[in-house]
Simulated assay, not measured.
Amino acid sequence: MNSTLKDRLLHDWLTKHQGLLLKIVRTFSFTPHDREDLFQEIVFQLWRSAERYNSETAAETTWIYRVGLNTAISWSRKEKTRQKQRNELSHIAPLLNSSSEPSDPRLEWLYEQIGLLNNIDRSLTLMMLDGFSYQEIADTLGVSVNNVGVKLNRIKKHLSQRASEIENEV
């Protein structure tokens, strides 16, 4: 596949699936700078993998999720290593959050809770919230359908318990 064709395919993917990519980025990164870095890395990996995409073996959305989530998981591992080597600026974190996104406290809480999950559970949750079937999630993440079901039930139970705890505190 020549570079021009890859560029067109990437542009088409970014146009159609920008929301999906932004959800992945938001789930795996927590500052505007990190979101920008991760988004660029995902776009680069999509471009690199474009010639391996086969519409007969995977739906376009599933392929993009697979590349995006695998890139995010890898980036997240590397980022944890980098964060250990520098000081956290948590006291200014609220200033770093993007103000361009609508602020819904429930949505912010959900992203925060999803962010506390391990990488695989984050990926499962994000795909479930986007309406993917257990089979599609299993194919994308390379786990069994049964494992997807068990993990998602545990995640749902955990999030429900956290919501109840918070509701009882208020």
Rank of each mutant, 00 (worst) to 15 (best):
R48P: 01
R52V: 10
Q113T: 07
K84F: 15
T71E: 07
L95D: 10
P94V: 03
E56N: 09
I155K: 04
R162F: 08
L117K: 00
L69G: 01
L107Y: 06
I166Q: 10
S76W: 07
M128T: 12
L117N: 02
R154L: 10
N87I: 15
R48E: 13
N147I: 00
P105V: 04
L89T: 11
A72Y: 06
R52K: 12
L10C: 05
Q40H: 08
L9K: 10
L152G: 02
Y111G: 05
K23T: 10
G142S: 05
E108L: 14
T61S: 12
K151V: 10
G68C: 00
Q161Y: 15
A163E: 13
E136P: 00
E41P: 09
F30M: 08
T31V: 02
W63Q: 02
E79A: 11
D12K: 15
R8E: 14
R154D: 08
F28I: 03
V150E: 13
L159C: 04
N168T: 14
S99P: 01
S164N: 11
T27Q: 04
Q45F: 03
N119F: 11
M127Q: 05
S3D: 14
G131V: 05
A59D: 13
E101Y: 14
H158G: 00
A138K: 00
V143R: 08
V148L: 04
K156M: 11
N119D: 15
F30Q: 09
R154G: 08
L89F: 09
W63R: 00
K16H: 14
L124K: 03
Y53R: 02
